[in-house]
Simulated scan of single mutants.
Amino acid sequence: MNSVLKAACCACLLSSSPAFAQADPERNLPLWEIGLGGAALSTPAYPGADERVSRVLVFPNVVYRGKVLRADRSGIAARLFSSDRAELDVGFAGALPSDSDEVDERDGMPDLGPLVEFGPRLKLRLADLGGKRRLRLELPLRAVIEARGGLHGRGTTFEPRLAYEMAGERRRWTLEANVSAVLGDRKINRHFYEVAPQYATASRPAYAADSGLLLTRLGLFGSRYVNEDLRLFGYLRFESYKGTANRESPLHVKDSGVSGGLGLLWTFKRSAARARGTATVDPSL
């Protein structure tokens, strides 16, 4: 699933996480920062769709560097455990809504509302490659909730992700490349791919979805500071839907999809208080 809805509720748009380090660089950084962000995004309406969803978003740019509660490039999370090599938190992600009347294959079916994902994530530092280059593994397990006419449970996803990240001096630029696979239970796959009998047509037969692979993904994310208060960022992501559990669904019409976005973050207020730090997070990445 795409995860760009988190742009509207945290300081950055993508699933890009800070790396681990043995030093404690956060002690000299503000405890919190506040600003505004804006971005233009484009993504498939859902995995395997032919139509796209494009949005221009304006959102709060909030950073909070508490020992437990965190709001940063990694999203909004409560850190439960942290060491030099591992970190466990509970956080949020999400996906943009899609109107069925704008998607030919779903015409006459219920809209796909915005999705909020919530659950634990284990982050492991696999290797420090020197020169501000690191390799990490993330293992997020998320419960998915649809916010459309109330809140409705839509199943569970698991997305193991391997990421390579690097940064320039004094955090002037950052770059991350990652590869991941998204696995879903039967309930979330039904949300995207099932065709109930009452929605079946001559060109869209009824279909019962199965649990299993939703997609595999290659992603690239980068950012660069223009000055102390302004940062540009962008991402590009390629998704493959070949070999997925529900490729025979009449709603699965494409074997690949591309997402992308560009944006700007502006910080206009910082706290005088300094972050206490935990000797684990390196804000240079």
Rank of each mutant, 00 (worst) to 15 (best):
A177V: 12
T201A: 11
A177D: 01
A202V: 14
L218G: 15
L215G: 10
E239C: 02
T156M: 14
L162Q: 06
Y241H: 11
E228P: 05
D210I: 00
N189W: 01
R217H: 03
L220H: 07
Y225A: 11
G212W: 13
A167D: 03
L214R: 00
R172I: 06
T156A: 12
K187S: 09
L183K: 05
T156N: 10
R186M: 01
V179P: 02
A196C: 01
A163N: 08
R224V: 05
A200Y: 06
L220W: 09
N178Y: 12
H191W: 14
E159R: 15
L175I: 02
R237E: 13
P160W: 11
P197Q: 05
V226L: 14
T157S: 09
R170P: 00
H191N: 01
N227F: 09
F233I: 01
A163P: 04
L162D: 09
R204N: 08
A196L: 14
R204M: 12
Y207T: 08
D229P: 01
S223E: 13
A208F: 06
L183E: 06
P160L: 09
H191I: 00
F192I: 06
V182W: 00
F192Q: 02
L220N: 04
K187L: 06
A206P: 06
I188E: 10
L175H: 04
G184D: 05
E169G: 14
F238R: 15
R204H: 07
E159I: 07
N178C: 03
A206F: 08
A163C: 12
G234V: 09
L218E: 10
H191Y: 15
E228K: 15
F233S: 02
T174G: 14
P160K: 04
L162G: 08
R190I: 04
T156I: 15
Y241Q: 09
A181F: 03
D229H: 13
V182M: 04
F233M: 07
L220S: 06
R231M: 14
L214G: 00
H191P: 01
P205A: 07
R224F: 00
E194L: 06
